[in-house]
């Protein structure tokens, strides 16, 4: 039996023929298993959806209650059988509710990582290594230039800039699911106790994080504030809002972005970012390599990102490796979520 008998790409997404289901499909399918709530992985219109409780809740928040016909909550670490294929969800450490999905069939185990990171994050359950034969990994930051620094150091830059520029509103572009909430937690851990202001697009997901028991400290709405306000304050917004006319209404806005892409100067400049913070919810080059080795997998499939370099490295380690060339992944990640 070949691993591709258990899982292979189709135009709709990664498909499991014996189980007759898809993992993170790009188009509506009868049965989908979803790793996490980012829109390039969690799309509306499927028949049955299985995901962690948090991912289901986030999908309902962002896509509407009718995002699928039937929902099934995956209990973390518990194996269930779908058409003879054993399936289990394990934490991926990417955002709240994010999971890897393990498939077991006829003695073969494949783990689909979805998106993941290895750094500690108080807003997401930590990544759990699952031993497998085939590891399907992302490669958003699969180049040796990507090494994410300590987030505390990056947050320190933001706090220093507040001191240095008390007359300017600090607008931080951070993706609405995951990055924004994690950034708030890092600010609290650094002792920042002022209210953090939120763009409207961040309110619902952030409220949901708090409902699950993640303490985020004082938060305030940015909507309805008079022109020229928020000097010396932090306002979180979706990255796309940084370039909006909306952002110009605050006091001499200083453009900040929190993303792994900020490690490359041209990327920051292309987006007009004045203060780049390298904070990512994806594994960096070291994290990807460490994880691949720890899973013990002899075969690595690379879904999206800088697949060429990671495949090259795997081959050098004596691991079988190939890119999957799934179209459509990483679009949200490339623009915002990374």
């Amino acid at each position: 039996m070949r691993p591709s008998d258990l899982l292979h790409p189709r135009p709709e997404g990664l498909y499991c023929p014996p189980g007759d289901f898809y993992v993170d499909p790009l188009r509506p399918v009868p049965r989908a298993l979803i790793t996490h709530g980012h829109s390039d992985h969690a799309r509306p219109g499927h028949g049955a959806v299985m995901a962690s409780r948090e991912t289901l809740a986030i999908m309902a928040l962002r896509l509407g209650e009718g995002f699928c016909e039937t929902r099934q909550e995956a209990i973390i670490g518990e194996w269930v059988t779908i058409n003879g294929v054993e399936v289990a969800f394990f934490p991926a450490g990417h955002v709240l509710g994010s999971c890897q999905i393990a498939l077991r069939w006829k003695g073969l185990t494949i783990v689909v990582s979805g998106d993941y990171k290895r750094e500690p994050d108080a807003t997401a359950a930590p990544f759990e290594v699952v031993t497998c034969d085939v590891f399907v990994t992302e490669a958003t930051f699969g180049l040796p230039v990507f090494r994410h620094p300590d987030p505390a150091k990056e947050v320190g830059k933001l706090l220093a800039s507040l001191q240095e520029n008390p007359h300017r509103a600090h607008l931080v572009g951070a993706y609405s699911l995951g990055k924004a909430q994690r950034l708030i937690r890092h600010l609290r851990e650094a002792g920042y106790d002022r209210p953090v202001y939120l763009h409207g697009a961040l309110e619902r997901v952030t409220a949901y994080y708090e409902e699950t028991g993640i303490a985020l400290g004082p938060l305030a709405r940015a909507a309805g504030l008079p022109r020229g306000s928020l000097a010396g304050e932090i306002l979180l917004c979706p990255p796309s809002a940084l370039a909006d006319i909306w952002s110009r209404r605050f006091a001499e806005p200083l453009t900040v972005a929190a993303s792994g892409w900020m490690r490359v100067r041209a990327r920051a400049r292309q987006r007009g970012v004045e203060l780049p913070l390298v904070i990512s919810d994806h594994a960096d080059w070291d994290g990807l390599r460490q994880t691949i080795l720890e899973t013990g997998a002899g075969e690595i499939w690379v879904t999206h990102g800088q697949e060429d370099a990671l495949v090259h490295w795997c081959l050098g380690q004596g691991l079988a490796a190939q890119p999957l060339h799934l179209v459509g992944f990483g679009e949200e990640a490339a623009e915002d979520a990374a």
Partner: peptide, 24 residues
């Protein structure tokens, strides 16, 4: 110090020689 293939791919992505070397 660095695998030339990985360096080449990195330079291709970063687009600036000094910056690529500084990061890698």
């Amino acid at each position: 110090r660095v695998d030339p293939v990985l360096f080449g791919l990195s330079y291709d992505f970063v687009g600036d020689l000094s910056e690529t070397i500084a990061l890698i």
